[in-house]
């Protein structure tokens, strides 16, 4: 393992977001705060408790998850897309680093940023609504696994995209709808039976549900199903990334 190279890639990626600290940290915090104001304070006061907790507290895990998914994907995809776009990727491809080390540097940095952001949003949320965390370690585990998995997904998108439009396509057309329909703002019990069944095909439901379980000890599906889905996601992302590097897809003609 070439630790110096991994460290260099990781530090460079981290300092890239420090240069753009406004977009990287402030804007997700602002948008999450807006969700709390609109859904938590304005609408939430008119909704009675959901599954035993106040509506404001109920949406906290979902909102963190929403932010975690979109930020992981956009950070990681941009991180690898930009050197491809500018051409400076040549240096990474010609360096004595393995593909695993490249992924570790890029995805590690993107996931780290997402986890930090997740914690910042958690802190922001506590300013709006009182809530408790029943299983803090499980909460952290979910945070890290989700950040890692979706940073890998972002990395894949960043390699697949051949223009800025495609870079936006997946987050906009897939991630955001799945998250909104994934039980961020409601419990799937509130849906008619048919739509409950359909919703169970949405992987984000399992993430939000598992994450919510770590807060309030209850979710739409069992915690094991949630862990299983995130594990499956992680494994398939890893498989795709390793295929990308073995085949040289979009990197090496």
């Amino acid at each position: 393992m070439n630790l110096e190279s991994v460290k260099t890639l990781y530090v460079a990626e981290m300092s890239r977001s420090l240069r753009t600290v406004l977009q990287s940290i402030i804007s997700p915090v602002i948008s999450t705060s807006l969700y709390f104001v609109v859904f938590g304070a304005a609408i939430g006061t008119r909704i009675s408790e959901v599954a035993g907790v106040s509506y404001g507290a109920f949406i906290v895990p979902g909102l963190i998850m929403l932010m975690l998914l979109t930020q992981s994907v956009s950070n990681a995809s941009f991180g690898i897309f930009f050197p491809r776009f500018s051409g400076s990727i040549y240096e990474i491809l010609s360096a004595p680093v393995s593909y695993f080390e490249v992924v570790l540097g890029f995805v590690g940095a993107a996931a780290t940023k997402s986890v930090i952001l997740g914690l910042i949003v958690l802190g922001t949320a506590s300013l709006f609504v009182p809530f408790s965390i029943a299983h803090p370690l499980v909460m952290l585990l979910f945070l890290v696994l989700t950040a890692l998995t979706f940073s890998l997904l972002g990395f894949i998108i960043g390699i697949w995209a051949d223009g800025f439009e495609k870079l936006q396509l997946v987050p906009l057309l897939v991630i955001t709808p799945l998250t909104f329909l994934g039980g961020t703002f409601y419990s799937i019990d509130m849906l008619p039976p048919f739509w409950q069944a359909v919703t169970l095909a949405n992987p984000v439901v399992y993430l939000v549900s598992g994450f919510r379980w770590s807060f309030y000890g209850m979710g739409d599906v069992s915690i094991w199903a949630s862990l299983g889905v995130i594990g499956l996601f992680l494994a398939s992302s890893l498989a795709v990334v390793s295929w990308i590097f073995r085949s040289g897809y979009r990197l090496k003609p």
Partner: peptide, 26 residues
């Protein structure tokens, strides 16, 4: 390797980008 195209991380400094290259090569 010095490539033909002028490619660079536009926003980093000369010192940082050259130091990055050294670290990248381990």
């Amino acid at each position: 390797l010095v490539p033909q195209e002028l490619t660079s991380e536009a926003f980093s400094t000369v010192w940082d980008t050259v130091s990055f290259s050294r670290g990248l090569f381990g």
